[in-house]
Design a protein around this nucleic acid. Structure first.
Length: 261
DNA sequence: ATGGTTGCTTAGCAA
C-alpha cells in the first residue's frame, strides 16, 4: 500500500498539477492539506474521473483537509474530538485495509509568542489525547500531513538562523516530541539519515532555488506500521515549474499486512 | 533587511 501527503495550497489553484501527479504516481491514498475550498467547492469530479474517491473537510478561504483514495475509507472522522463547531478544519481520518490514516494540517502559529502560537502548541497535545482515547497500541496507524515544525537540525537548511523562528522554535519541536512519545516514528528517518531533505520552501526570496527549505511535512507511524514501511520519498520535482505549491508531496510504501486483510 | 510571494476574495488576512 502506498500513502502520500501533500499541502497543495488550494486544491482549485493546484488542480492540474495535483491530478497529473496523482495519475502519474497512482498512490492508494493521498492526504491533502490547505485545500482552501468548502466541501461543495471541492473539484470532486476531476478526482473521480481518475478513479479516486474524495472525503473532504473544508472551509472557505483558509485551511481545509481531504483524503482521496482508490478504495473507500471506512469510519471516516472529521476534526479533533474536542473541536469547537467553528474551529478551523485541520484533521480528517479513516481506515483502509486495517490501517488507520489521519491527515493533519497543524496550525502554523503565525508568530512566536502569539495566542495562535500557544494554540499551535496545544493542538499537538489535543492530537495526542485523540490518539490515546481512540487508538489501541499496536494498531497500524499513520498520522501524516503538514506539521508546521521541522523536527531536528538536519531538517532545517540554517538551524542557527531559524532556532527562534516559527516552524523551528524549541517549544514547537518539544510539542512534536511529546506527540511522538505516544508511540510514533518519523518514517522518513527510517530510510535517510542525512541533512538537506526538505518538503517546504517559502515562496519569498527564491528559497527553493537557493535550497532554503525545511522538512515540515511528515509521516508518523505506530511501530506496528513502521515495521512495514519500505520507502519514503519526497518528490522535489513537484515543487518545480509554473505555479507550484510551496510544499512537495511525500510518498510512503508499506508491505502488506502478513496477517492478511 | 520586520523585507519577500501566493491564494482567496476583492483589501486584508493567513501562511
Amino acid at each position: 500500500m502506498r500513502i502520500a501527503t501533500w499541502n497543495v495550497n488550494s486544491v482549485r489553484a493546484r488542480l492540474p498539477r495535483v491530478t497529473a501527479w496523482l495519475d502519474a504516481v497512482r498512490p492508494d491514498v493521498l492526504c491533502l492539506q490547505e485545500t482552501k475550498a468548502t466541501d461543495a467547492d471541492f473539484p470532486r469530479a476531476e478526482f473521480e474521473t481518475l478513479g479516486y474517491r474524495v472525503e473532504s473537510f473544508g472551509q472557505p478561504s483558509y485551511h481545509g483537509v481531504a483524503i482521496v483514495s482508490r478504495e473507500p475509507l471506512t469510519g471516516v472522522f472529521r476534526g479533533l474530538p474536542d473541536a469547537a463547531p467553528d474551529e478551523d478544519r485541520r484533521l480528517i481520518g479513516g481506515d483502509l485495509r486495517g490501517v488507520r490514516i489521519v491527515g493533519v494540517y497543524v496550525p502554523n502559529g503565525t508568530e512566536v509568542g502569539s495566542e495562535r502560537f500557544a494554540a499551535k502548541l496545544r493542538w499537538f497535545g489535543r492530537l495526542r489525547a485523540m490518539l490515546e482515547a481512540a487508538t489501541k497500541p499496536g494498531e497500524p496507524l499513520v498520522v501524516c500531513g503538514d506539521f508546521n515544525v521541522a523536527p531536528e537540525e538536519r531538517d532545517c537548511h540554517d538551524p542557527d538562523a531559524w532556532r527562534g523562528r516559527i516552524l523551528f522554535h524549541p517549544d514547537e519541536r518539544r510539542a512534536l516530541v511529546q506527540l511522538m512519545d505516544w508511540g510514533l516514528v518519523d518514517l522518513f528517518r527510517l530510510h535517510e539519515e542525512g541533512a538537506g531533505h526538505y518538503t517546504w520552501w517559502d515562496y519569498r526570496g527564491g528559497a527553493f532555488r537557493l535550497g532554503q527549505g525545511l522538512r515540515i511535512d511528515l509521516m508518523l507511524a505506530s511501530a506496528a506500521l513502521a515495521r512495514r514501511c519500505r520507502s519514503v520519498v519526497i518528490d522535489r520535482e513537484a515543487r518545480k515549474g509554473e505555479r507550484p505549491s510551496d510544499h512537495a508531496p511525500v510518498l510512503a510504501e508499506f508491505a502488506e499486512d502478513p496477517g492478511g486483510g
